[in-house]
Amino acid sequence: MRIREFTEADWDQVWPIVEDVITAQETFPYDPAWTSEVAHDVWVERAPGHTVVAEEDGKVLGTAKMGTNRPGPGSHVATASFMVAAHARGRGVGRALAEYALDWASRQGYAAMQFNAVVESNEGAVELYRRLGFAVIGTVPEAFAHPTLGRVGLHVMHRRL
């Protein structure tokens, strides 16, 4: 598996991953009615942000976006988001993307990384982030409407770099 910078030619493989994740409504607070164009505008970061894909044999297995969490006085903290194709889950793709994002943020000079909205019922992601050194620093109760679990919390997770 190789992680590389996203190119516009990748969108045809990235969009189905994004669409699958957001229409499932289990892990991302994105509108499931978004078109490909709207999702592209949200997912593909503009400089100084960065968007990447994880690929194997020309097939995109996952994608990540990363950049500054907040402008101005908060610009020393990075953030990132990750999506993995359903068929590639459990193969280390998410971990590889998260490690890449942490390395990228460190090389860019960020002091920390913060995730603003990790769905608390997304146990795989929460556990991965904990293993990578993140801590839950707060949870917004009932902030995410899960399709089968009802309202669940959104964790704010943080790690110094």
Results as ranks from 00 to 15, higher is better:
residue 69 N to Q: 09
residue 135 A to H: 13
residue 147 P to E: 11
residue 108 Q to W: 05
residue 153 G to R: 13
residue 23 T to E: 13
residue 95 R to T: 12
residue 27 T to R: 00
residue 103 D to Q: 11
residue 114 Q to H: 02
residue 80 A to D: 03
residue 95 R to P: 05
residue 97 L to T: 02
residue 144 F to T: 07
residue 37 E to Q: 10
residue 22 I to V: 12
residue 121 S to D: 01
residue 116 N to E: 02
residue 139 T to W: 05
residue 101 A to K: 01
residue 96 A to Y: 07
residue 101 A to L: 08
residue 76 H to S: 00
residue 57 D to Q: 08
residue 98 A to M: 14
residue 51 T to E: 05
residue 153 G to L: 14
residue 141 P to A: 10
residue 126 V to D: 11
residue 149 L to I: 10
residue 149 L to Q: 04
residue 34 W to A: 00
residue 148 T to L: 10
residue 65 K to G: 15
residue 136 V to I: 10
residue 117 A to N: 05
residue 35 T to L: 07
residue 131 R to M: 10
residue 126 V to P: 06
residue 21 V to M: 06
residue 114 Q to V: 01
residue 21 V to D: 01
residue 43 W to C: 05
residue 52 V to A: 01
residue 98 A to E: 00
residue 130 R to G: 05
residue 146 H to F: 06
residue 83 M to L: 14
residue 138 G to N: 12
residue 38 V to T: 12
residue 79 T to R: 03
residue 115 F to E: 08
residue 103 D to L: 07
residue 45 E to M: 15
residue 32 P to Y: 14
residue 95 R to M: 13
residue 85 A to C: 00
residue 68 T to R: 03
residue 118 V to W: 04
residue 57 D to H: 09
residue 28 F to M: 04
residue 95 R to F: 09
residue 132 L to D: 01
residue 31 D to H: 06
residue 127 E to T: 15
residue 41 D to L: 04
residue 128 L to F: 13
residue 156 V to L: 09
residue 133 G to V: 03
residue 47 A to L: 06
residue 119 V to S: 11
residue 107 R to P: 08
residue 43 W to A: 04
residue 147 P to A: 01
residue 88 A to K: 08
residue 54 A to C: 14
residue 33 A to R: 09
residue 56 E to G: 07
residue 32 P to K: 11
residue 32 P to C: 14
residue 27 T to S: 07
residue 125 A to Y: 12
residue 107 R to E: 11
residue 23 T to M: 03
residue 65 K to T: 15
residue 120 E to S: 15
residue 40 H to D: 01
residue 62 G to N: 08
residue 50 H to V: 11
residue 44 V to T: 03
residue 24 A to F: 11
residue 98 A to D: 06
residue 30 Y to E: 09
residue 79 T to L: 03
residue 52 V to D: 03
residue 103 D to E: 14
residue 144 F to S: 03
residue 33 A to I: 01
residue 37 E to T: 06
residue 32 P to V: 10
residue 42 V to Y: 04
residue 150 G to H: 06
residue 156 V to A: 04
residue 122 N to H: 02
residue 151 R to H: 04
residue 48 P to L: 09
residue 147 P to D: 06
residue 141 P to T: 03
residue 87 H to N: 13
residue 61 L to E: 03
residue 48 P to I: 13
residue 147 P to S: 08
